[in-house]
Write a protein that binds this DNA or RNA. Structure first.
Lengths: 127, 127
DNA sequence: GCTTGCCTTGACGCCGACGACAAGGTTTAG
DNA sequence: CTAAACCTTGTCGTCGGCGTCAAGGCAAGC
């Protein structure tokens, strides 16, 4: 399987796959002409990467999951390192959610205040 | 008031104030030697900007609020344009919160699955 | 042989809100 | 006279995950 095919099957681009490789996440054999050649296992790896990135992981966060797959596990989640990252990411997400909740609350307050102010101004202008 | 003083009183840096000016948010008189001179009103403007940026607004989002202050209002929130932005931002925040909730749910599922898998492996290894 | 369509490496662009540094002018204190 | 502590404009760097050329090689059909 060449890079174009892998990219299409993984729903991404050749550029992206080379990028992952440059960062040590994806591996490829080389054919005599220098083309990258991938096997089916790499497809799973790439899909794992994509799934995690979609969820907000960074490339570094993904590494343990890839290593876990490479170690022969059916899921990238089951290794200790992956679990550590999972816990950390969940905590991060919780923190952001809390933060955004507070922000939402504040913005809602500002909006309410602004509307109330407009009522007042409107009433005065009608007098 | 020179730029250094305004920066300190607003809790930011001179660089940042020049940046805001370059983007049309902050205005300054010039003393004969070319130094920027600010009045108290600009301090309020800068504080408004900072408060909104802290909450996740972009510079463009902030513009209506600054204009509203410049129009003589006691709050930057009370003008129609500001209210539009407020509503939009609240909607954006809500969307992100929803999204993150789903992400959190998924990650929690992966974590649970991983732990369960480890239990199984552990039991097998004990046999 | 020529075109088409793959592939290769390399390097710049992007977005946003600045930080950091360069090279210089000004004012004040000692 | 000089050092210190301001100020000026201008330019490059940051972070991440790529997109987008550029310039060239290789394979295959006509």
């Amino acid at each position: 399987m060449l890079i174009g095919e892998l990219a299409e099957r993984a729903g991404t681009s050749p550029r992206t796959l080379r990028y992952y490789e440059a960062h040590g996440l994806v591996r490829a054999q080389r054919s005599p002409n220098g083309y990258r050649i991938y096997d089916e296992a790499e497809l799973r790896v790439v899909r794992e990467i994509r799934a995690l990135l979609d969820v907000g992981f960074g490339l570094d966060d993904v590494r343990p999951f890839v290593a876990c797959l490479r170690a022969g596990n059916s899921s990238g989640d089951v290794c200790p390192d992956s679990v550590v990252v999972l816990r950390r990411k969940i905590a991060e997400v919780d923190a952001v959610i809390d933060r955004l909740g507070a922000v939402r609350h504040q913005l809602h307050g500002q909006l309410t205040h602004a509307i109330a102010h407009r009522e007042k101004t409107c009433l005065r202008s009608r007098k």
